[in-house]
Computed example of a mutant assay.
Amino acid sequence: MDQLIPWSSLFGGMLLGVAAVLLLLFTGKIAGISGIINGVVMPKSGETLWRVVFLVGMMIGGLVAIAYLGIDNPADSLTINSTNLWVYAIAGLLVGLGAYLGNGCTSGHGICGIGRLSKRSIVATVIFMAIAGITVFIRLHIL
Rank of each mutant, 00 (worst) to 15 (best):
N73R: 08
T106R: 00
L16R: 05
S45V: 07
H141M: 14
A65R: 05
I80Q: 00
L69M: 07
L25R: 12
I138K: 10
V21H: 14
A75T: 04
A19D: 09
L10T: 03
S77I: 09
M42Q: 13
G110V: 14
E47C: 01
I71V: 02
K119M: 15
A65F: 03
I33T: 14
R51K: 08
T48V: 15
A20Q: 04
L10I: 02
L24I: 10
A130R: 02
I90Y: 03
Q3N: 13
G28Y: 00
L23E: 06
G13H: 04
L85P: 04
I90D: 06
P43I: 13
G28E: 00
M58W: 00
T27G: 07
R139G: 09
G104M: 00
H109M: 10
S107R: 07
G39I: 04
I5L: 08
A124I: 11
I33R: 11
T135H: 07
M129K: 07
F26H: 14
M14N: 02
I111L: 06
A75P: 05
D72Y: 10
C105P: 01
R51F: 04
D76A: 06
G35N: 09
F11H: 08
I142Y: 02
S8T: 13
V87I: 10
G35W: 04
M59C: 11
I37M: 13
L69N: 06
V53E: 09
L97K: 00
G110F: 12
D76I: 06
L78A: 08
A19W: 15
T83E: 06
A130Q: 03
F128A: 01
M59G: 10
R51T: 11
S9I: 03
G113E: 02
G102N: 03
S45D: 15
Y68T: 11
F137M: 11
I30A: 14
L69R: 04
N38L: 14
L15T: 10
D72Q: 13
L63V: 15
V87F: 09
I131H: 04
S9C: 03
G28N: 00
A19C: 15
I30T: 13
R139N: 10
D2C: 13
S121W: 05
V40N: 03
I66F: 02
Y88I: 12
F54L: 01
I60C: 08
N84V: 14
G133L: 04
T27N: 07
G17C: 05
F137H: 12
T135S: 11
L97V: 07
K44G: 05
M129G: 08
M129H: 08
D2G: 05
L22F: 00
K29Y: 01
G108Y: 03
I90G: 11
S107L: 08
L55W: 07
W50H: 13
V123G: 10
L4D: 11
L97G: 01
L49K: 14
I142P: 02
I36E: 08
N73D: 05
G115R: 05
V87W: 03
I80D: 09
N81M: 08
W50R: 12
A20R: 04
I142C: 01
T125H: 06
V56M: 01
P74H: 07
L15E: 05
V123W: 13
I134H: 04
L78D: 10
I60Y: 11
S82Q: 01
L101R: 07
V53H: 09
I37T: 15
W7L: 12
